[in-house]
Simulated scan of single mutants.
Amino acid sequence: MRIAVFIKKTTFHKGYGGIETQNKSLCEGLTKRGHEVFVFSPKLELDRNSIVENGVRYIFVSCAFKMDGFFGERNKDNWFTRSAQRFEEEHAKQPFDVVIGQSSAAVGVIKRKWELNIKVVSVAHGTIISEYKTFLNNMVGLREWIKIVSNTGYVLKSFFSRQREYVHGSEKVVAVSNFVKSALVDETFVDAQKVEVIHNGVDGGARPIQAHPNNQPLKLVYIGRLERSKGLQNLLKAISRLNNVTLSVIGDGPYLPQLARLVKSLHLSERLIFVGRVAPEKIPEILSQANVFVYPSLRYEGFPMAVVEAMFCGLPVIASNIGGISDALENGTTGYLVKSGIIADLRDTIREFVNKPDLIRKMGDAAYAKAQREFNLDTMLSKYEKILEDVVK
């Protein structure tokens, strides 16, 4: 198949995260299976118009990407208009068989799909109300209260137009977790049969590590964006009251200065390392040096890739029971789900691994087995292929 993929950012852009990583794996995996894949994305800060990487062709569209308020789409250079025009140019050269839209990125094509004679499958990584609830739950200071006006306008526009446009305008919608599917059905009233859950897949990982000896520190690791909504401030407070525990933080983001100050005030400098962003291929090596992966999120996550990556490396996981995270974990078997934002719950769960180090190997083995069984890349690709083939028929 000749496949066009629409996404608002790629791994070539600054500040990319799980959605962009998942999209890269999906596109490169489909290419390896013999499909021809083109990715359309805003140019933003990039200095090139196109690039080919691992068989996938990326086309970067010059456009006015930010469309604030209710009238942003009147700008003829907005992303939805320009992306549809650029797609039409490529479609005229050689027709595409199907379009994949990451979230609402393909709305411009969806609005013209009958004219362009193309079918669309969209991927939902979350919902607009879930994102808004995350924003409200993490508001701090006057600046956040000022932002609430513009954010509420964006939410209303997305809730009543963009989200419903891409959900109802697509032939099929993929939700990355059962939580996302349920929220999407509630918010858009889409027929549940139209939405299929496909969990994000990962291309393997290192074998499970050995449990740490009783006389060595418990080595915790976190991988992800450094934002207040990721809950790292709660993790720091939790480990400050525990002995024999260290933490490595992998990633970057706007919340780093606040976290650094908190580390100093809690006297954690000798037990915590900010590693920064690392190349994806280096992640398994870093995870293999840890004992437990911790994901203390305050966000209504769709299905975080970092959790699955840790499981593939044989790490038990402590994660907030919020959003779609529970799709990945079996509480008490592959790790523990804790109450989001409750520091005492997080602290006591970490202490469980300190006091019972044998759990590290036992739960780590179970996490690895579950990841291999349910979240491998081949399983994800096969499910996407089937949906795409059924839609094209």
Rank of each mutant, 00 (worst) to 15 (best):
V99G: 05
H125T: 09
W114A: 14
K93F: 05
V107N: 13
Y132E: 08
Y132L: 03
S130I: 02
D97V: 03
V109T: 05
R143Y: 06
N117K: 15
N137P: 00
V140C: 06
N138K: 11
K113I: 03
G141I: 12
F96P: 06
V98K: 03
F135M: 03
V99N: 04
N137D: 14
S122V: 06
L136C: 12
R112Q: 15
V109G: 03
Y132P: 00
V123L: 11
E131L: 05
E131M: 06
R112W: 00
F96T: 02
I118P: 02
Q94I: 07
I128L: 08
I110T: 13
V109F: 06
E115G: 04
V140Y: 14
K113A: 06
G108E: 03
A106F: 01
L136P: 02
S103I: 08
R143W: 02
V121K: 04
I128T: 12
R143F: 07
K119I: 01
A105G: 10
V107H: 00
E115F: 07
L116T: 03
S104L: 10
W114N: 15
I118E: 01
V140Q: 14
A124Q: 13
L136H: 02
I110G: 01
A105I: 07
V98Q: 05
I129F: 13
Q102E: 15
V120Q: 05
H125L: 08
V123K: 07
Q102Y: 08
N117V: 02
V120P: 04
A105N: 09
K93A: 14
R143P: 01
T134L: 01
S122I: 07
S103Q: 14
H125N: 14
L142T: 12
V121E: 13
G126Q: 12
G101D: 10
Q102P: 05
V120G: 02
V123A: 07
M139S: 12
V107P: 01
F135V: 02
H125A: 09
P95L: 10
K113G: 04
V121D: 12
S122H: 09
K119A: 00
V109L: 07
G126W: 00
T134W: 00
P95V: 08
S104Y: 14
M139A: 14
G108T: 02
V121F: 06
N138W: 05
G126L: 00
F135I: 05
I118C: 01
V98P: 04
S104K: 10
G108C: 04
N138L: 06
W114R: 15
S104A: 15
V121T: 11
H125I: 04
I100H: 09
L142P: 02
V107L: 09
I110A: 03
K93V: 14
D97Q: 06
V109S: 00
G126T: 15
S130D: 13
E115A: 13
T134C: 02
L136R: 10
V123R: 11
K111F: 05
A106G: 03
I128R: 10
L116D: 00
D97I: 02
K113Q: 15
N137I: 00
A124Y: 09
A124D: 00
N117M: 09
G108K: 03
T127A: 10
S122W: 08
W114T: 13
T127G: 12
V109M: 05
V107Q: 00
G101K: 11
K113H: 08
D97W: 01
N138H: 10
S130N: 10
F96E: 09
A106Y: 00
H125G: 12
I100T: 09
A106S: 15
A124S: 15
G141F: 10
V98D: 05
